[in-house]
C-alpha cells in the first residue's frame, strides 16, 4: 500500500518533469515539441554508453548531450517557424521526431542497448516492517529537488521573469528588450536538461534503450499539459503529475485488468477536460494571457 503510493508519487514526479520541459517550450513558442521524446532518448543512450564512468559524470554527459540536441533542434528546425501557426509547428516537430528516431537506429541499431546504470537504486529496504524500493524514494527526492529549483528559476530569477512575460505576450516582451533568440534558446536548453533527468529515472527502471524509448512518456506528458492547462507552467507540471500518478495507481488497482489502465486513464482525462476544457489551472492561465 505504502509502496503503491510511493510509486504513484514518483511516477507522477517524473511525468511532471517531462511535462514541464514541454510546457517551457510551448510557453515561449506556442510549439508542442513532440521531438521532446528524442531528447529523452538521446539522454538515455548517453547514460547507457557512458555507464562505465562514475554515475555523476555519466549524468552530466547526458544533460549536456540532451541540452545540446535541444539547442540544435531549435536552431535548425524551429527557428524559422517562429510565429507560424501551431499546427504547422506540431507537424514539423513530428518530422523531427521521426527523423531522429531513424538517426538513432542507424547509430545505435534498432535493438535495445542496455547497461546497468545506478544498480544501487534497484534494491529495496525495510522501514518498520514495510519494504520500500530505493528507486521510488530516490526518484521522489530528485523530482522534488528539481521542481523546487525550477520554481525558483521561474518565479525568482530574471530569466524566469522573462520566460513568464514572453509566454504571455512575446512581442511586448521584445519591445522592452527581451532578447528573443537568447530566451527561446534558454527554454530549449532547460527542457533538454529536464529530459535528461527523466531519462535517468527511466533508464534505472528499464535499462533497455531503443530508438523509441522516450515516446510513451512524452505522449503521456503531452496529455498531462493539456489536462493541467498548457498556458501555465504550474498547470503543465500538475497535469503531468496527475497523469503519472493516476496511471501508476490504476496499474495497482486494476490488478490483472491492468491492460485497461490506459483506457481508464483516458476516461478520467476526458472527464476532467469536459469539466474544465482549458485544463485544471485554466482560470489562472487566462488571467496570465490577458
Amino acid at each position: 500500500m505504502i509502496q503503491a503510493i510511493l510509486d504513484a508519487v514518483s511516477l507522477g514526479g517524473v511525468y511532471a518533469l517531462a511535462a514541464l520541459g514541454l510546457g517551457l517550450v510551448f510557453g515561449v513558442m506556442r510549439l508542442v515539441n513532440f521531438a521532446h521524446a528524442e531528447l529523452i532518448t538521446v539522454a538515455s543512450y548517453t547514460l547507457v554508453m557512458t555507464h562505465q564512468f562514475p554515475l555523476l559524470v555519466s549524468i552530466i554527459f547526458s544533460v549536456v548531450v540532451a541540452s545540446l540536441m535541444a539547442l540544435i533542434m531549435e536552431l535548425v528546425a524551429y527557428r524559422r517557424l517562429r510565429g507560424s501557426n501551431p499546427a504547422t509547428m506540431l507537424i514539423v516537430s513530428f518530422g523531427v521526431s521521426v527523423l531522429l528516431q531513424k538517426v538513432y537506429e542507424l547509430v545505435f541499431g534498432a535493438l535495445p542497448r542496455s547497461a546497468s546504470v545506478a544498480t544501487w537504486m534497484t534494491g529495496a529496504f525495510t522501514v518498520g516492517g514495510v519494504s520500500i524500493t530505493t528507486a521510488s524514494v530516490v526518484t521522489i527526492v530528485l523530482a522534488v529537488v528539481i521542481l523546487l529549483a525550477m520554481g525558483y528559476l521561474v518565479e525568482r530569477t530574471k530569466l524566469g521573469l522573462q520566460l513568464r512575460a514572453a509566454a504571455s505576450d512575446f512581442q511586448t516582451a521584445r519591445l522592452l528588450g527581451v532578447r528573443s533568440n537568447r530566451l527561446i534558446a534558454s527554454a530549449f536548453v532547460i527542457s533538454g536538461a529536464l529530459a535528461a533527468v527523466v531519462a535517468f529515472v527511466n533508464v534505472v527502471g528499464n535499462p533497455q534503450v531503443d530508438p523509441r524509448f522516450g515516446l510513451d512518456i512524452t505522449i503521456l506528458a503531452l496529455v498531462g499539459i493539456v489536462v493541467g492547462g498548457m498556458n501555465s507552467l504550474r498547470g503543465s507540471a500538475l497535469g503531468g503529475f496527475i497523469v503519472g500518478a493516476v496511471l501508476s495507481l490504476l496499474n495497482v488497482i486494476l490488478g490483472n485488468g491492468r491492460v485497461y489502465a490506459y483506457s481508464w486513464m483516458f476516461v478520467i482525462v476526458i472527464v476532467i477536460l469536459l469539466v474544465r476544457p482549458g485544463g485544471i489551472l485554466s482560470k489562472f492561465a487566462t488571467k496570465e494571457r490577458v
Partner: peptide
C-alpha cells in the same frame, strides 16, 4: 498599454529595465 496583467507592478517595471 499591453502591460503584463498576470505579473506584479514591480515585475513589469523590472522587465522594463531589460532595455537599458
Amino acid at each position: 498599454r499591453q502591460i503584463f496583467g498576470g505579473l506584479s507592478v514591480i515585475e513589469n517595471l523590472t522587465l522594463g529595465l531589460t532595455g537599458r
